[in-house]
Amino acid sequence: MAMVIETLGLSKSFKGVQALQGLDLRVPEHSIFGFLGPNGAGKSTTIKLLLGLIRPTAGAGKVFGLDIVHETVAIRKRVGYLAQDPRYYDHMTARETLRLTARFFYEGPAGAIEERVNETLDLVGLKEKADRPIKGFSGGERQRLGIAQAQINYPDLLILDEPAASLDPMGRKDVLDIMERLRKHCTIFYSTHILDDVQRVSDSVAIMNHGQLVAQAPIGELLAGSGRTIYNVVVKGDGAVARRTLEEQPWVASVEATEEAGQTACWQVAVTDDEAAEARLLRLVLSDEHCTVTEFGRRRYNLEEVFLGLVGGEQNGR
């Protein structure tokens, strides 16, 4: 699969403080890539490095195969960017802002530029407010304008830094809907700490903490858990024999009873061999006549569990 973003040992320090350490990131083409981490984990620093707004202190990075230090203008021709706290010229209207943005990418008749501006205003639902100064815009309207200016050039890569952070639930939904609409046209790389959003729209995820990459995988893989696979088995009746039988299997690492109530027991079976577990685990338990299986399944993690497990439950990345 072609990679849109590739970094190798990318590092950045500010006055002796290491903001990013040896980042190896690979973002596949046409993915919605969630870039997660607590505040100060290095997400915005990474994005600024990719855009050439700051320079790395070590390592290298490529976007579309172009060097992030020496070919930054060529990269930005194909990128749309929404900053965490986007700032525009307040005296300008939304239309003027988009017109200015469009002219960084395109030249041609004024009418054609206006057509592109109108299309974009339509996409984000700002047509009614297009001719009002940005000064009076709400947070949600500013964010919509941010998305509009980021995609006016139909970018091959859309970089969004915390696109939904300052929005109410409706605003968040709008932003996620827009992202879903854009996914077929481009790769979307976005940073966030709102895990529900990531689980809803992303197909790949990287998790940062203390300026370091702690995990990077397709979201399905990440939610399936890393390392040992865990199966949840709920049995009714006397499951002692079945449990002993499981513990004797060479592919079973452990069997932990997490909750027991009366005649019901809930086991978490950690296995080291997925194939053996799939073929034999359920059969072994069912073969014990003293108990019946009421629930069985491979454990699915939610992103919050994975995230907190990886970043150690810390609230701040620094």
């Binding site: 930005r76 960017y81 700032r87 010229y89 960084f104």
Partner: peptide, 13 residues
């Protein structure tokens, strides 16, 4: 104001 960072995130030298 942050507008310099916005402008320079576009293809501007």
């Amino acid at each position: 104001l942050g507008t310099a960072a916005w402008i320079l995130s576009k293809p501007v030298a």
